[in-house]
Design a protein around this nucleic acid. Structure first.
Lengths: 260, 260
DNA sequence: GCTATACTGTATACACCATATACAATTATT
DNA sequence: AATAATTGTATATGGTGTATACAGTATAGC
């Protein structure tokens, strides 16, 4: 009945405009000239700029003029810049979720999940520059929640625990995504020889971090383990794997306890 | 000899100006009128504004006029806004590291570390709005690295593993700091009745998340487990504890393996 | 087919933002 | 007393997101 309809409409309209666009809830208009632009083109252009020049380069003006239009034309398609940012994250999360690879156990599958999360963040270094506004509410982003939940499906965990586990995994991904993004940036800056971008922080810290004030950190800084902006990727990979395996171990332990 | 001195000076000067200030490396000037402002006052004011009105409210103009000065006066003390942000994070990390509480084991101590990290982020919700520019290089922030390293000191882990573990713990803290910050914000917005701030997302998602497209997520959304912006803090606390215990379990397992 | 309507892209304007620069006032050193 | 450094300020520049008003255009209903 129509009462329900309007109620549904209302709750759908309460979504941010970006989310409404992502879900295909915005009806295309028939009257008036058909738009030469499109939400898709705008988002694609914005992602391209962000990929090449970083998130700060993505201004409404920049995106519009890249497309050969004026700034304000974008607002005929997108209500605000926040909506654009939401759609950008949505666009790069349009991945193909692997088939329910029967052979692999949940550990391998979770590793795969984390790996793909991080691949997204490294392919689009601006990704983690966009602050988390809240829980995912757009289709592709929700796929990135549904997928790991499916991996955990047959484990003896409560739904709260499953959700917690997914949060844990995605949090770990995001955190290391940030670290690897920073590392990539440092390497890139290092490749550019005339930007000495503070790779000498290590030397400065070696002077400032005294054994008295920082007894546990001192040997690490002294050994150069702390500031390896030099791009020792293998070590970062080891760090990453180490943490991931600890988390998986912890989950496995919990699962085996629950089974007993 | 003077050659070494200038080299040291150089490496110290390579630090961002904010870090130089934090380490007390900037010599006060003798000539000219003594400043009526001070770096301390500026940072304190900025932190106060951010605490009360959020990070976007912290503009150079706002900070300066709060102190009764003009915008540009701040630049006599601080080179850039980035430096101000760095000093803000430094200021709120000026915590007292607990004594080497002999009674407690490393698990309890790590829990304490995470707890304090999160307390900082909740007391200063803007904290996690500041993007991580790189590895900590200021005194108080380094204390927050030294402390957990000290907790791990006597465990049979390599220095790389210790560093990885600290990264893991601080990453987990930060991730949940973000979640709890968002939750606090949602509650605050909910307390303000005329801002219906999208607490109806749950209803919208219940329409959009179908069992076909999101088989594993569907029951969670349907049960209302997913979107509890309603401020069910206990559940968040459970989620948080659950993840933390899994991580600690994983570390403990690794340690006991290393011991064997 | 005509008209009313809704939509398009644009131009202009506004209120911010960080910060470069020039300047007068002030103070310690020479 | 003269010099030189440092302070706070006023002004200006080039950026940001976006509200608003407007002219042109394509469709819907008559």
């Amino acid at each position: 009945m129509s009462g329900d309809d309007t109620m549904d409409e209302d709750s759908l309209n309460s979504l941010p405009h970006g989310a409404q666009l992502a879900w295909g809830l915005v009806k295309p208009s028939t009257r008036g000239p058909k738009g030469e632009l499109s939400v898709g083109k705008i988002v694609e252009t914005a992602v391209g700029i962000a990929d090449r020049e970083g998130l700060p380069a993505v201004s409404m003006n920049r995106v519009a003029s890249s497309l050969g239009f004026t700034t304000m034309s974008l607002y005929r398609y997108i209500k605000s810049k926040d909506d654009l940012l939401m759609l950008m994250t949505e666009a790069v999360c349009d991945i193909q979720v692997p088939e329910e690879s029967e052979g692999k156990g949940w550990r391998d599958q979770l590793r795969e999940y984390v790996e793909i999360c991080i691949r997204i963040m490294r392919a689009h270094p601006w990704f983690t520059d966009i602050p988390i506004m809240g829980v995912p509410i757009t289709p592709n982003n929700l796929k990135m929640v549904d997928w790991p939940l499916r991996i955990l499906q047959n484990l003896p965990l409560s739904e709260y625990e499953k959700m917690s586990t997914v949060l844990l995994m995605s949090g770990y991904s995001r955190f290391y995504g940030v670290i690897m993004r920073d590392m990539d940036r440092a390497i890139e800056a290092g490749a550019n020889p005339d930007s000495f971008s503070g790779l000498m922080y290590g030397e400065a810290l070696r002077q400032l971090v005294t054994p008295e004030a920082y007894p546990a950190l001192y040997p690490i800084v002294a050994a150069g383990v702390y500031t390896e902006d030099d791009g020792n990727k293998d070590e970062a990979q080891n760090d990453f794997d180490f943490g991931l395996e600890r988390i998986l171990d912890g989950i496995e332990l919990h699962v085996s306890r629950a089974r007993a």
